[in-house]
Design a protein around this nucleic acid. Structure first.
Lengths: 161, 161
DNA sequence: TGCCCATTGTCAGAACTCTGATATTAATGT
DNA sequence: ACATTAATATCAGAGTTCTGACAATGGGCA
């Protein structure tokens, strides 16, 4: 039996690499980047979605869970899950909204603010890696493509006239 | 009518849209595209990862679960989960490999082949949408960026010298 | 006033993805 | 021959994401 040395198809053979399907490359890119982010965030214990939620909450403290879901293009259930985990970790706090009966006000705790400061440094370093090797114009092309590819997916839209 | 109200911050205000962080845009793009793919695949009952796994198995019928995980840049556990669901749905079959004791040979069932034919038509239509509005050169830029962003994430690599 | 409906939030269940741990088998080294 | 290492596959548990279903609140309209 020879040692067929790692001839996995795909190095230049098939749909991998720069010749692959865009959808396939998109999924792998997102998986790979998330993996790198969470490895880097390991010491903070945050996941990529948790980091994104904390960042949004810090920027827009008035927003409800439903608001955040709309901003992030996620379903209310998904955002609810992420916030529940942040609350269990004592990084956010929720208390009943005075005027609006069902709404709840969300706040970062001190621990939440502290961990967010550390996490931002780690993630922004990776963010600059993401642009490395691409000109300003190329980056604009990439951004434009990403926005088009996402395509405001869950836009319940139509609002039925 | 209009109902242009939707004043959530982020239309042109902040980190959303084409000015947002690349990592953030990447996650949203992948989420949105996956959502569109699975909506389109609804009638087949397949998910995007299941579709990818079936496609790979059809192209490389000799490969084991571990091989597929390497090709797709996923962990063996993840690929194992996907294959288990495909097996429960009777779209693939696994029987013990003759020569190699622990390896298992994976095969598409007739149902698996049939569903894959239908799914390919649905997904490839979306794939062309993904390139619409971008020149050949711009598409090359996007592909190159996606490959760099993914960065062969889990490459256990180094193999400890 | 009282009913309809949109908004907000949650529970349940499924699939994907990771880390960590474990068992089994093959290949290798002394 | 025996021990070590590598590869394959799986179990367990956590977090993210969806669909589907439901309760509670608030506003609008007959």
């Amino acid at each position: 039996m020879g040692k067929t040395t790692r001839l996995l198809p795909g190095e230049g053979t098939d749909k991998r690499g720069p010749d692959g399907y865009l959808g396939y490359l998109l999924r792998q890119a997102a998986n790979g980047y998330r993996h790198r982010v969470e490895t880097s965030l390991r010491e903070t214990g945050l996941t990529q979605p948790q980091f994104a939620a904390l960042t949004m909450l810090d920027a827009y403290p008035e927003h409800s869970s439903a608001d955040l879901a709309r901003i992030a293009l996620l379903t209310p259930q998904t955002m609810s899950t992420i916030l529940r985990n942040l609350e269990n970790a004592a990084l956010i706090r929720r208390h009943p909204h005075q005027e609006h009966g069902r709404k709840r006000r969300i706040e970062l705790t001190d621990a939440g603010r502290q961990v967010l400061v550390r996490a931002k440094r780690l993630v922004y370093a990776l963010e600059t890696d993401l642009a490395e090797g691409f000109s300003e114009e190329e980056q604009r092309t990439v951004r434009r493509w990403l926005v088009a590819a996402g395509g405001r997916s869950l836009e319940g839209g139509a609002t039925k006239p």
